[in-house]
Design a protein around this nucleic acid. Structure first.
Lengths: 198, 198, 198, 198
DNA sequence: AATGAATGAGGATTCATTCAT
DNA sequence: GATGAATGAATCCTCATTCAT
């Protein structure tokens, strides 16, 4: 009934200002932790790495899936930005997409999970993210492109490349991703994150 | 003269025979449980479904990964049998492979897991299984086949199809698997398990 | 000449006035929340329902018990008012008392709690409230009344009726309360809150 | 993933034999803990006092309410035994009932709780226990008894006495219980637990 | 004086693993 | 060999309380 430090010094409390910063820190921490220890890593590890209490994590995200989706959303946003940048072309956008695929292997699971136990609208949100990726890619998909023939093909191809991305090092994963695209007969630009300006 | 009661009142004399039966029951149970609840389902659920105590599970398998690999091994064995059957061809073997890919989505994870925390030789064993699949397929891979060009391509393609296999129903997963093979320009036979004889 | 905006664009100047309104809102909210979710409902729920921040709750009440006692105090005040009204008689006052008993079942607990863990003077305050109820009733207790024979009987009877008041609906609880008074051989007036004027 | 003591000495494990003993120990511990700290005492405290791990508590009882009901069930069984003993009469049985009322004040709450949040069949079970008490009492209720007049009166009276039972010491609670029965015009035998033989 | 985010201890719950029978 | 109860660490999650704004 008297949880907090009875009299000691409290670590801090920079007030509401911190909210946005904390959310960002949590997402960044989650990205790292999930990458290192997989999707089932303890949520407490994420809070710790973000430098916040566990309560903050729960305030921002109701459950583990929400955290994962927040990370994914950031990835998607980067892909959208890459697609919206000046002089963007399909190869470049695919490069950014591939970068994220090789970075966060763990997330393959999120998309596969059809909510075994998940009672939330997480699957719907995941689908929405998927569609945003699709739209971003289609913007630059030329008429006669291999993956433009049938409607579903584009996202199936994305899933296929994700499936090929295994291995302990990013280098190996990148090599496999590129081999996968080659097998699909698709040209891919440099594999790298989308960085603000250029 | 009184014969021993035929079936009643004999708790279990068959001692040695039971071990093999239990192992099989555990693997079958694990296949179902993993399919229903994912790879992180409680081990106790597997023992319960197999109708044995938890101790038996530990007698046969040191840890969760060992259980998963045992299930995978059965899959691999079926693929090898399909490859060894009379009149087998690459399309037919791929059909059996694809069947297993659409059946146990959960196992994608096993292969991705590079043993975060796993201190065992599980990765090595997983690699061995992978090579057995590769050998089974290569037996029937014609000289000029699309996937025969470069050494790694064959198994990368297998991984790619696994990546495409998502969705709640087996039908949907099969449709996606076939689309994936089509995108790879590879012909696949009927998607079904290898059943004993023919 | 520009007058200050009548109601818009003035965040809250009324400073002093607000405090009283907040206190009342908190008590009303607490009454509802405790009734719905029991005495151990989260304090944050009370603040939320009252439409104020959690800090305000702490400004007005040091702890959960203080909130509960504030609700009880209001009940007691109503009973006192009923006792002070023109033409009041014992049956009428008991009717008002009974109303509160059927309204807030949750508070039975407060009086039973001998402060397991409560380091405060809450028990003393609870006793004081109890005595105020007793005084209010005694004002109208005729000489030869059943409950006037021995000193403690009056409040024991009140406790007894509280004990009889169970059940999910107010109707059921009222029926049981009336049965209890009947078993005690005590006449009770209409069961209703004391409303201002009459 | 590697919970237990990695190599240390394990406290013990007397095997399945302990199951029954543990259950009994848990109920006894729960009775004490609930009496001391109320119904919301930490379940871990009960396990600790019973000298078992927390898991054992969960194996035997799915939730807090189940624990409480198990304690109540024991009380009820004693009352039934008192009612079944040679030479039992209503006063004697009421004495045993009253003993339990003065012993475990905390349980008033269980019966009041109509399952706010409780999704289980606990209320139904509670009702069943209540009916068993009623049957035990009715066995010895003489035709013209005060509480025999109307059907519901008997159990309402029981509830009423429970409501009167407040106070920090057992002595005080017993005094109040007896005053309550007196106000109801009901004779009660010696207030004591039912002890096996006599 | 109000707000509401943050803290973080505490309690609930699960489940891998051991081991007496 | 099999059984399944017991252990208890680890994780989840809640919420009382503080405090920057």
């Amino acid at each position: 009934m008297l949880h907090p430090l009875p009299d000691e010094r409290r670590p801090a409390n920079e007030g509401p200002r911190a909210a946005a910063r904390n959310r960002a820190a949590l997402i960044a921490a989650a990205r790292e932790v999930f990458a290192e220890s997989g999707l089932k890593a303890p949520l407490s590890a994420i809070a710790r790495r973000a430098g916040v209490g566990q309560g903050v994590l729960y305030r921002h995200f109701p459950d583990r899936t929400a955290v994962a989706l927040a990370v994914l959303e950031e990835n998607v946003r980067q892909i959208e930005q890459a697609a919206g940048a000046d002089g963007a072309d399909i190869a470049g956008v695919l490069g950014v997409l591939t970068w994220h695929q090789t970075e966060s292997t763990a997330f393959v699971g999120v998309l596969h999970a059809d909510g075994a136990g998940s009672h939330s609208d997480a699957p719907a949100y995941a689908r929405a993210l998927s569609q945003r990726v699709e739209r971003a890619l289609r913007r630059h998909l030329p008429e006669g492109h291999r993956l433009a023939a049938r409607p579903g093909d584009l996202m199936i191809a994305v899933g296929m490349v994700s499936g090929a991305v295994t291995g302990p090092t990013r280098e190996q994963r990148e090599r496999r991703a590129l081999a996968a695209w080659r097998l699909l007969g698709v040209e891919v630009g440099p594999v790298r994150p989308f960085e603000g300006g250029a």
